[in-house]
Nucleic acid binder design. Structure first.
Lengths: 125, 125
DNA sequence: AGTCTGTATTGACGTCCGTCGAATCAGAGA
DNA sequence: TCTCTGATTCGACGGACGTCAATACAGACT
């Protein structure tokens, strides 16, 4: 349930130390781009962006699918599909507890993506 | 050349002050998600991620298409297409000077995306 | 004007994506 | 074991995406 294969195996996105300098400082190498782009791609859908936000901002840091689904005008399978996409992108983890499945954000990769997009404050020069 | 329509018209992404708290703090509203998701989507392709990085990290803050294209095993039209996608997502601006066209990153939206992905440092609790 | 170079647009192709209904799986409880 | 509920998987459909070759456009230089 919480396993993810794919390109994430190439670079350890679970590391707490960001691996990459900001996109604005050095050219992102092709290999890094190949690894990180799928994460951005997963964020590139409004439903998934909201899902991730609902999960990450939920109290306790986790959210049940049963709480997520009713927030959208979409069927259960569709929400499930989007959650799977977020999981495969390494953005969230899932855990079944009894009847319900809980999702939890993975802060490390979020930090990494944020670091990549970091821009120097405009120099007052 | 530097005009972009679409969803970006709804929210001023050129503002220097980030409009939104981190994704992990408050639920991203549907409208905000609809506006920002296309930007993440544009970053969701390895070629575009590298293009943006090459542009943003170039000295002078700008890069000519003629310098960008040879870095990829792709045809000119394909690179042009990706640059158009980045433009329409509001991530870059283009300007023609004589024979060449120069692209330049838009720091404001990058800051905004980075802010959205910001995560509190893990509390030592 | 004519031509050459750099860039963008068009049209086409195969693939991937978002969505749904139907079927399936996993636990809980009678 | 039956059934009920929550969640995922499967199969299908329409539309969007990444790529290319061919074409068109914009300046510069004859």
């Amino acid at each position: 349930m919480s396993k993810q294969a794919g390109p994430l195996a190439l670079v350890d996105l679970s590391a707490e130390t960001p691996c990459c300098p900001p996109l604005t400082q050095r050219r992102v190498p092709a290999e890094t781009a190949a690894v990180l782009a799928p994460a951005f791609k997963a964020l590139g859908d409004p439903v998934r962006l909201r899902l991730l936000s609902m999960i990450a901002s939920a109290e306790g840091g986790e959210a049940c699918v049963c709480d997520l689904t009713p927030a959208f005008d979409l069927t259960g399978p569709t929400i499930s599909h989007h959650l799977k996409t977020l999981r495969e992108a390494g953005l969230v983890d899932a855990e079944r507890r009894g009847t319900w499945v809980y999702y939890r954000a993975r802060p490390a990769i979020l930090r990494q993506l944020a670091a990549l997009l970091t821009v120097q404050p405009t120099p007052a020069a």
